[in-house]
Amino acid sequence: MSTTDILLWGVLPYVTLAVLIGGTVWRYRYDQFGWTTRSSQLYESRLLRIGSPLFHFGILVVIVGHVIGLVVPESWTSAAGLSEGAYHVQAIALGTVAGLCTLVGIGILIYRRRTTGPVFMATTRNDKAMYAVLLAALVAGLATTLAGSGAVGEQHNYRETVSPWFRSLFVLRPDIEAMAEAPFSFHLHTLIGLLLFALWPFTRLVHAFTAPVGYLLRPYVLYRSRTAAPARTPRRGWEGRPGDYPESTTGAGAPYSGTPEGGPRWPRNRSRH
């Protein structure tokens, strides 16, 4: 077990997890207004209507596949009478189809983004970085599926290396040795995946965390009382962001509580800026 292995498979996952959770909580609190799909359907609909469902439904199947492959121990499927060979056949079939759908979908979306003027103009640097990592993760993942199953090169049973390591992370006793034994392609895919998770809270991918499943259960028409409206710290044009001034009584998130007796709150220390 080398130092590199410890860093990569024993430390990095926890750093990523901390960034993912911390970043998401922070953004949820700080940036509700920026938390959106930032859809570009208004600009272009024809290609989007092919590419977007292909990508999204594909990736949902891919996620389910990951959960099954990583979370369910091999002993369980064997006990259920599924041989390793049979498991791999269904995994490769499902995984390749879903992976290809996803890849074709994102291909169409990237092509659309690059060639449709308004869509390209609405693409930020943040988006571009996210697309690069997402695409890399997809390609590496698909390659791993093909490689691991023995379709290309030597077969590798990741359910004896990657999966135990993944599960061990959550009981805080990372099985670094198991992971270190996995072939390079698995290492690469895992690392790109970790990078994607670390970027996640800071990109438009956050929209996935607010998938509107509650819609299935709620009443159609919603009423809200004015008084129940979410309170917000008011900011004047001449004021900085909430919390810029130590004297400020209303920090970010604190409910606004009526008229301060002294009238408008001025920055006390303007020259600081």
Binding site: P212, Y215, V221, R224, R226
Partner: peptide, 15 residues
Amino acid sequence: VASCPSGAMYKRAED
């Protein structure tokens, strides 16, 4: 309001 999946649209109860 009925179409909004995230429940962001609402009718104000008072007015």
